[in-house]
Simulated scan of single mutants.
Amino acid sequence: MDDEASLLPRKLQAALEQALEQRNEIINQDSDSESDDEYNSLNSLVSEAFIRFFLETMGHYSLFITQNERGKRVLQREAFRKSVASKSIRRFLGVFMESQMFAGFIQDRELRKTRAKGLFEQRVDQYLEELPDTEQSGVNKFLKGLGNKMKFLHKRN
């Protein structure tokens, strides 16, 4: 819809674009030797970029799911959004929290009876453990994580 520049936090958008461009560059360089493993590794890079994006923007969601007086799990929406230090990420969350994607994500977490953890929840747990008391810039962690993943994948090829 051409509103990405105004919705996505600029640094996170740039990091996503960089990861996708690097994936394309690696594909173009190694186009003559595309094996299934290399292709899957490059697709994993794209998945990793988006997982990191969502971890940086909403990885703290579980800290704001509480039980109300009826025992129902609910997200403290405004506290969740306001807990983010970055104004651009808060602005993104304000829009994203109105989307059907976010509503479905949170509804699934609120209604979940078992504590079975999928990949995203496992990564959220790691993310929350890694956050220091004085939280460093999420963007820097995001870029560092992508850089490390890129180096690993490029060395394998």
Rank of each mutant, 00 (worst) to 15 (best):
L143K: 15
L16C: 13
S44K: 09
N43M: 07
E21P: 00
R115T: 10
N28E: 14
N24D: 09
E121W: 03
L146G: 10
L63A: 01
D36T: 13
F105A: 08
K149D: 06
R112I: 07
L119N: 04
V95Y: 11
M58R: 11
F152P: 00
F142W: 13
K149S: 05
E17M: 15
Q13E: 10
M101A: 11
E69D: 07
E121G: 06
Y39G: 06
K155M: 08
F96Y: 15
L119A: 04
Y39F: 15
L131R: 14
K113V: 15
E129F: 07
F105I: 06
S137D: 15
G59D: 10
F92T: 09
Q107L: 11
F54C: 07
F96N: 05
K141M: 06
F54N: 07
K82C: 00
R115D: 13
R73L: 08
F64E: 03
A14H: 08
V74T: 08
R52Y: 04
V95N: 10
I27E: 05
N140W: 12
D133Y: 07
A85M: 13
V95F: 14
G71R: 00
R112E: 14
K87I: 00
N24W: 00
K11L: 07
V95L: 11
K82E: 08
G59S: 02
R73W: 00
A116P: 00
R123Q: 14
F120M: 15
A5K: 15
R10G: 04
E34H: 01
K151D: 10
R90I: 10
A5P: 08
M101N: 01
D32E: 12
Q18L: 13
G71P: 13
S88R: 04
S99K: 02
S86Y: 03
V46E: 12
D3N: 08
F96D: 02
S62N: 09
R77Y: 03
N24I: 01
S44C: 07
S86T: 10
Q126W: 06
N148R: 00
G71W: 00
Q22R: 02
V124Y: 04
S88C: 13
Q76H: 04
S31P: 00
E48F: 12
K144L: 09
R90G: 05
K87G: 06
F54E: 09
V139A: 11
K113Q: 10
D108N: 11
Y39W: 09
E25G: 05
R10W: 03
R112V: 07
